[in-house]
Every structure is written in C-alpha cells, then in structure tokens.
C-alpha cells in the first residue's frame, strides 16, 4: 500500500498536507467524471488545478471536501489523505473540524444573512471561546477592510467582490489549515481578481493556510501558485512547477492564449492523451 503514496506526483516540498491518490468519481452511479486523479498539496503551499469547463476541477475539490454526496456523487476508487488521515468517508462537517474547508464556486453567500452573520456561520464547528471567535472576526476584518464597512448589510445585496471576500472570510472563521478555493476569479473584474489573489497570498504567508485552487484563469493562477495540475476530461494530463508550466508551449497555446501562428483549424488542435498508470 505504501506504493500508492509514492505514486502520487509529489511537488518538491517533502511533507504534503493533502494527498489525493488516483480517485475516481461517479455521479448518479453511472456518470464517470474523474478517471484517476492524483495530486498533492505541500504544507503551506498554493497549488492550482487548471482546466477548461467540465474538466473536473470542481468535482475534484468537492471529492476532497466531501460535498459530492449532496449531489449524488461518489468517490469509488482511490484515497484522499488529509493530515495523515484517510478522509474520503468523512462528512464535510468532520473535515471542516479537522481544518479543511471549501469556498465554493460562485461565492454562495447566505443571501438573507448579513455579512457579519455570514462570517460567523464559518465558526459553526468551533468549540473554543467566543472571545477567540471575536478575535478571528477582527482578523478577517483586517484582511478585508471592505467587509467591516458592509458588516450589517445583507450579503445578497453586496457586490460580487464583496461576496467573494465574505466567502473567503467565512472559511477563515473556521480556522482552517487548508482552503479549497473554487474559481475565485469567476465573474469579477480583473482588478478585483488581482486583489483577491493578493489576499490569498497574504493569508498563505501570514496564516500558513495551504491553498488548493481551481481556476480557469490560468494566467493569474500560475502567477500565484507554486505548482499546477492541468486537468482534461477527468484526467491530469500535465503537472509541474508553476514556472515550468508558464513556459510550456502547449500550456501557452491552450490555456494562456499565446503562441501558435495565427488561426488554426480545429482539426489540427491536439488533445492530450497521456495517461498515467497507477498501481492501484
């Protein structure tokens, strides 16, 4: 069994906080969405999962955070190890308590709750004193000063950027060791996207939160992440240091929109077929 752990492509850093070993995900008992995905996130790292629509980024994150079951999805093969513990059969609630929380795609704030109430829901699983929670609320407000101004407005009426901040702040309130961040750039102005990623970087530096983020915006994701995995139709087709990926000709062509000589016909577009072989 120890082979499985070594089989995972491990980034340079030694001890991963999260390892995903060759997982397969099936929705509704029939639809195979992930066909053996493996990845690892080093402690204190920022790792990006890249890929187009429907490649399986969100499914990968939800498989880790155990939100799949709510959508009738199921991890049928492989294992997920967080902090040295198998977590694939845990409830989302138990996982949040262990320090791994997901910020879902599209913000998903509680529209009828105020911004501050939204943040406080993130502390649901915490058992420590209310003064500790109040201190963390203060910390969230120092990272997101704009939320302090909007603290008593209904989250449904705040702007997209504020909602994204609320969603990240809400996750922070659970005192996570790791945040699974799904598509933080979605629907936001480029400047705001930059701002959100700056804060992610800062949280990573100052709070030692590890991040696994799923992004379509390959460009920005590879600037902030240290390591990247490229997902296509439920398989990882390429992975490497962010810098190496940025230089990679294929990545440039398919995901960064540079390179190639002018317009090309669809026929000549090449698809990755490289499949990794795993032991399990």
């Amino acid at each position: 069994m120890s082979d499985i752990a070594t089989a995972a492509p491990s980034p340079a850093a030694a001890e991963p906080i999260l390892t995903v070993n060759n997982i397969e995900v099936i929705y509704d008992h029939v639809i195979l969405v992930l066909k053996g995905v493996s990845l690892a996130v080093p402690r204190g790292g920022i790792v990006a999962i890249l890929g187009a629509n429907g490649a399986g980024k969100t499914t990968t994150l939800k498989a880790i955070s155990n939100l799949l079951r709510a959508e009738r999805g199921e991890v049928t093969k492989g294992s997920i190890v967080f902090e040295g513990e198998q977590v694939q059969s845990m409830s989302a609630n138990a996982l949040v308590r262990r320090g791994c929380i997901q910020v879902m795609e599209g913000r998903r704030c509680f529209a009828h709750l105020t911004v501050e109430e939204n943040l406080m829901t993130g502390a649901f699983t915490r058992r420590d004193s209310s003064s500790d929670i109040a201190r963390d609320l203060e910390m969230v407000y120092t990272y997101f000063p704009r939320l302090r101004e909007r603290r008593s407005s209904q989250a449904g009426y705040t702007s997209g950027g504020e909602q994204q901040m609320t969603a990240i702040g809400r996750a922070l309130m659970s005192r996570p060791k790791m945040i699974l961040l799904d598509e933080p750039s979605m629907g936001l102005a480029p400047q705001l996207v930059e701002e959100i990623f700056e804060i992610v970087k800062k949280l990573n530096d100052e709070q030692q939160v590890s991040f696994l983020l799923a992004e379509q915006n390959t460009n920005i994701a590879l600037r902030y992440a240290e390591y990247g995995y490229i997902l296509e139709s439920g398989r990882i087709v390429l992975d490497g240091e962010a810098k190496a990926l940025r230089e990679n000709e294929d990545v440039k062509e398919f995901y960064l929109g540079v390179g190639g000589e002018g317009r090309r016909s669809f026929k000549s577009v090449k698809h990755y077929k490289r499949r990794k072989r795993w032991l399990s």
Binding site: L67, E71, S91, M104, L113, M120, T121, T125, S174
Partner: peptide, 24 residues
C-alpha cells in the same frame, strides 16, 4: 444563536451551509 444562524443559513443555501461545516 449559533444554531439559529445555521438554520437560517441552511434555508438560504443548502450546499454552502454544508461546505462551512454545518451539520445537517
């Protein structure tokens, strides 16, 4: 209260409530 807030959160967005660790 904490639980009251969670009940309202659940009313707003089921999945998101699950994602922040609210126990159904």
């Amino acid at each position: 209260t904490r639980i009251g807030r969670a009940i309202r959160a659940l009313g707003d967005d089921h999945q998101a409530a699950l994602s922040v660790g609210i126990s159904l």
